[in-house]
Simulated scan of single mutants.
Amino acid sequence: MNMKIADGVEMLQLQMNMMGNTSTINPTLLYDENHAVLVDVGMPGELDALKAAVEQAGVPFNRIDGVILTHQDLDHVGGIQDVLQALDKPVEVYAHPEDQPYIEGDKEPIKMTRENVDQLLERLPQEVHEQVKTLFSNLPTAKVTETVYDGEVLPLFGGVQVIYTPGHTPGHISLYHQPSKTLIAGDATVSENGKIIGPNPQATLEMPIALDSEKKFAMLDISKAICYHGGLCESNVNEQFRQRSEN
């Protein structure tokens, strides 16, 4: 089920099945009566579930005219080609320039090089090998139409501030919806049962950089935080980030 965070802010909940492991991921939908923007688009093959989640929020899918990609990882960008084809109209695609060449397919995604996939297959049971090979043999790409930078305020839905939060990937960004004081963290931090627990070491390329990036959140007035992995945090969010920044 979706979760309404504030007027014009909806946390979507999608089931992700990746290499035999099922988990919930949380793209965000920002919208008003005329426009809608998705923040991240889930895995390949999830278009029907994504459409259903958007429409459950009371937003026609064809109202979407923008997609903001927090970074290059497959569970965030995997649905981009399906989304753009389904909309069949000009759609702005926003990303940070550091991750742009990976999203556009000019470079292999850092965590999904051929060597990485071969190493992954060695650790996985035989029954998921074909799924993994299929998944990584034709990675979705999209043209980034708008590059975004740290501190930039996008003129969308009352103001969406870009926070450059590298570490998880070189071009990872988080977003701060100013009117509702909502942080859309992407993978800059994860949560569990409403508790902020920091970047995931297993999925983060540069942990010291990621921890420094997370400290930026302590400088914001955050009412609620949406973590792509872990979902909504709404209890003492400012205090949680302040405490983490002091460690």
Rank of each mutant, 00 (worst) to 15 (best):
N193D: 14
L220T: 03
H168L: 01
P140R: 06
I110H: 06
H177D: 06
E152V: 06
Y228I: 00
T141N: 09
P179K: 10
Y228V: 00
P155M: 05
T204A: 04
V162P: 03
V190T: 14
D118R: 14
P199Y: 01
V132P: 12
I226M: 00
I173M: 13
G167K: 03
F136M: 15
V160C: 09
Q131A: 13
P166W: 02
T182A: 12
A142M: 09
E130C: 03
V148N: 04
G167N: 05
V132N: 12
E152W: 07
G171K: 03
I163T: 01
S191K: 02
L154K: 12
E115L: 12
F217C: 01
V153K: 11
P208W: 10
F217D: 01
R123G: 07
E122P: 03
S137D: 15
I196R: 08
V128C: 06
D118Q: 15
T189K: 03
G151S: 12
T189V: 14
I226Y: 00
E104N: 07
E122A: 14
G171D: 01
M219E: 15
E108K: 10
S137Q: 14
A218C: 13
N200R: 02
G231C: 03
E115Q: 14
F217Q: 01
Q119E: 13
L139T: 14
T147G: 04
V128Y: 07
P109T: 09
I222Y: 04
I222D: 06
G230D: 03
